[in-house]
Amino acid sequence: KKTSWTEEEDRIIYQAHKRLGNRWAEIAKLLPGRTDNAIKNHWNSTMRRKVEQEGYLQESSK
């Protein structure tokens, strides 16, 4: 079943993607209940745009 993505999950994906790049299977290990494919789709459909537009979460990672 599809549940919506939480801010916490987005944060984990964002940090992991910065470190690992497009290694979705590795990132998926950090998110129980999410598949690598689901994460990749979420990144491509939602997060990548956010990151590019806003420099997503930069201000809170100090």
Rank of each mutant, 00 (worst) to 15 (best):
K1F: 06
K1I: 06
K1Y: 07
K1V: 09
K1R: 06
K1Q: 00
K1D: 07
K1C: 07
K1M: 12
K1P: 04
K1W: 03
K2W: 07
K2F: 05
K2M: 14
K2G: 12
K2I: 07
K2C: 10
K2R: 11
K2L: 10
T3V: 13
T3P: 07
T3R: 06
T3L: 09
S4W: 01
S4L: 05
S4D: 10
S4A: 06
S4G: 08
S4E: 04
S4F: 13
W5F: 15
W5T: 03
W5D: 01
W5I: 04
W5N: 02
W5C: 02
T6L: 03
T6K: 07
T6Y: 01
T6G: 05
T6D: 04
E7V: 06
E7G: 09
E7A: 10
E7S: 07
E8D: 09
E8M: 10
E8R: 13
E8W: 07
E8V: 07
E8P: 03
E8K: 15
E8F: 09
E9G: 00
E9W: 00
E9D: 04
E9A: 02
E9M: 02
E9N: 02
D10S: 05
D10P: 01
D10W: 04
D10I: 05
D10R: 03
D10L: 06
D10Q: 11
R11C: 03
R11D: 06
R11A: 10
R11T: 09
I12V: 12
I12L: 07
I12R: 06
I12W: 01
I12N: 00
I13V: 07
I13C: 04
I13A: 03
I13Y: 00
I13E: 03
Y14K: 09
Y14E: 09
Y14C: 11
Y14T: 10
Y14I: 11
H17Y: 13
L20V: 11
L20F: 07
G21M: 03
G21S: 04
G21V: 03
G21H: 03
G21C: 03
G21A: 05
G21N: 04
G21E: 06
G21T: 02
N22S: 14
N22D: 10
W24G: 03
W24S: 02
W24Y: 04
W24L: 00
W24P: 04
W24C: 02
W24I: 00
A25P: 14
A25T: 09
A25I: 06
A25C: 08
E26M: 03
E26L: 04
E26S: 05
E26W: 01
E26A: 05
I27R: 01
I27F: 03
I27Q: 02
I27L: 04
I27A: 03
I27W: 00
I27T: 02
I27M: 08
I27E: 02
I27V: 04
I27H: 01
A28P: 01
A28W: 01
A28I: 00
A28V: 04
A28F: 00
A28R: 03
A28D: 01
K29Q: 10
K29P: 04
K29T: 09
K29A: 13
K29M: 13
K29C: 06
K29Y: 05
L30N: 05
L30A: 05
L30F: 04
L30H: 08
L30R: 05
L31K: 01
L31D: 00
L31Y: 02
L31G: 00
L31W: 00
L31C: 14
L31H: 00
L31S: 00
P32S: 05
P32Y: 02
P32K: 10
P32H: 03
P32C: 06
P32Q: 06
P32W: 01
P32M: 05
G33N: 07
G33V: 04
G33K: 12
G33W: 08
G33M: 05
G33T: 11
G33D: 14
G33S: 09
R34C: 09
R34F: 01
R34A: 07
R34K: 13
R34Y: 02
R34I: 07
R34Q: 03
T35A: 09
T35P: 04
T35S: 13
T35I: 03
T35R: 06
D36S: 15
D36G: 04
D36E: 09
D36W: 03
N37F: 12
N37T: 14
N37C: 13
N37H: 12
N37A: 13
N37R: 06
A38P: 01
A38T: 08
A38K: 06
A38I: 13
A38R: 05
A38E: 15
A38N: 09
I39L: 04
I39W: 00
I39H: 00
I39K: 00
I39V: 12
I39S: 01
K40E: 14
K40T: 01
K40R: 15
K40I: 08
K40W: 08
K40H: 05
K40A: 12
K40M: 14
K40G: 05
K40V: 08
N41E: 14
N41V: 12
H42C: 01
H42K: 02
H42P: 01
H42S: 00
H42V: 01
W43Y: 12
W43C: 01
W43P: 01
W43K: 03
W43S: 02
W43L: 03
N44C: 12
N44Q: 15
N44K: 15
N44R: 12
N44H: 09
N44L: 13
N44V: 13
S45G: 12
S45D: 15
S45W: 10
S45R: 12
S45A: 11
S45L: 13
T46S: 12
T46G: 11
T46L: 12
T46A: 10
T46D: 13
T46M: 14
M47A: 04
M47I: 05
M47F: 12
M47G: 06
M47H: 08
M47P: 04
M47E: 06
R48Q: 14
R48L: 09
R48N: 07
R48C: 10
R48Y: 03
R48P: 05
R48G: 10
R48S: 11
R49E: 13
R49M: 10
R49C: 15
R49Y: 04
R49P: 15
R49G: 12
R49F: 08
R49K: 07
K50P: 11
K50T: 06
K50W: 05
K50Y: 03
V51L: 10
V51T: 13
V51Y: 09
V51W: 11
V51K: 08
V51C: 09
E52P: 14
E52W: 09
E52N: 05
E52D: 13
E52K: 11
Q53P: 07
E54F: 06
E54L: 12
E54Q: 12
E54G: 14
G55I: 01
G55T: 09
G55C: 14
G55F: 09
G55Y: 06
G55E: 11
G55M: 05
Y56G: 12
Y56R: 15
Y56V: 12
L57W: 08
L57S: 14
L57Y: 08
L57H: 06
L57N: 14
L57I: 11
Q58H: 13
Q58E: 13
Q58T: 09
Q58N: 13
Q58F: 05
Q58L: 11
E59A: 10
E59L: 08
E59S: 10
E59D: 08
E59R: 09
E59V: 08
E59M: 11
S60E: 14
S60L: 08
S60H: 10
S60D: 11
S60N: 06
S60P: 11
S61F: 05
S61C: 10
S61N: 10
S61T: 14
S61R: 09
S61W: 13
S61M: 12
K62I: 12
K62V: 05
K62E: 11
K62T: 13
